Simulated scan of single mutants.
Amino acid sequence: MSLPPQFSGHRISGKADAKHTLELYLDYVCPFSAKIWKQVYENVLPFLEKEYSGQVQVIFRNQIQPWHPSSTLVVEAALAVEQIDPAQFAPYSNALFVNQKSYFDEAVVDKTRTEQYKSLSALAANTTHSSLREDKVLSLLQINPVSTASEATNHGNKITNDLKYHIKLGRQTGIHVSPTVLWDGIVENSISSGWTLDQWKEFFASKL
């Protein structure tokens, strides 16, 4: 349930000293993750703030599903946005879910890694705060090519270390698929991506 300060943007609602924690392990290119995100972002978060203010913190956890190769690149873009302005992590995450089909396998199969980084950087500049200039986001993502394999270092980009944290966390916690939801550190299998707001209300009424 801990959240390093450099990833403060992942706390999308509430404060660290809240009595309870709701964690959402989501993949930006997973349709079911998009479904639960939409309900939580648009309806559940305002409900919690109104009815249970200060009682619950909600943390977004990046869960990369490697069978969708673009998932890694999309998460890198979200982490780049967070490095620049943590307050824009949630709005950009929302934009990624809204536009997730642009990063589905069939949509990107013929696109290079650099082309996808450029697309993700443009999305950041177009859908969030003006401080997120496209070139600034891209500078954290891009990797300079080399002429020969012997010159390659395999060091990744300026987001690689941040990415490793989130991958290690999911593995250590034993999260296998998205969406997976935890309540106070324990997987809550009763929660479904198809839940209505009323079902969420019933859940919180039983827990708070």
Rank of each mutant, 00 (worst) to 15 (best):
T196A: 02
S2E: 10
Y103H: 05
V137L: 10
D135V: 00
D162A: 13
K118L: 08
V58P: 05
F47Q: 04
S190M: 06
E151Y: 10
Q100T: 00
I191V: 14
S178Q: 06
K50S: 15
N43R: 12
K207M: 07
E49F: 02
G194M: 14
D162W: 07
N154S: 14
A34D: 01
D27L: 01
I59H: 03
L141C: 06
Q172H: 07
A95K: 02
E134R: 12
D110F: 08
S71G: 01
E23P: 02
Q6W: 02
V81L: 10
W37S: 13
P46Q: 15
E51H: 12
N144T: 10
V29A: 01
E42A: 06
T148R: 10
Q88G: 05
F47L: 08
W195H: 12
P31Y: 09
K50I: 08
Q63P: 01
S147N: 10
E151R: 14
L120S: 04
V137I: 14
G194E: 14
K38E: 09
N161E: 04
I186H: 12
S53R: 15
K158D: 15
P86W: 13
A107D: 11
K35S: 07
V40D: 09
Q39P: 04
D184S: 06
Q83C: 06
L132W: 04
A95Y: 00
H10R: 08
F7D: 03
L163F: 14
K15Q: 12
W195N: 09
S206F: 00
Q63G: 05
N99A: 05
G54N: 09
P145N: 05
R171G: 01
S8H: 01
T173Y: 02
A152N: 07
L24G: 13
E42N: 15
S147V: 04
L79M: 07
A80K: 09
Y103E: 05
F97W: 05
I186N: 14
T153L: 12
L96Q: 03
E134I: 04
R133D: 13
E106Y: 09
S147D: 13
K15D: 13
V177K: 11
V40Y: 09
L73S: 15
F32N: 10
L169I: 00
E188D: 15
A149T: 09
V109K: 11
Q39L: 14
R11A: 07
F203W: 08
V98Y: 10
V181L: 13
W200G: 05
P66D: 11
Y92D: 02
K38D: 08
I64A: 03
V56P: 06
S2I: 00
E188Q: 15
G185R: 07
Y92A: 01
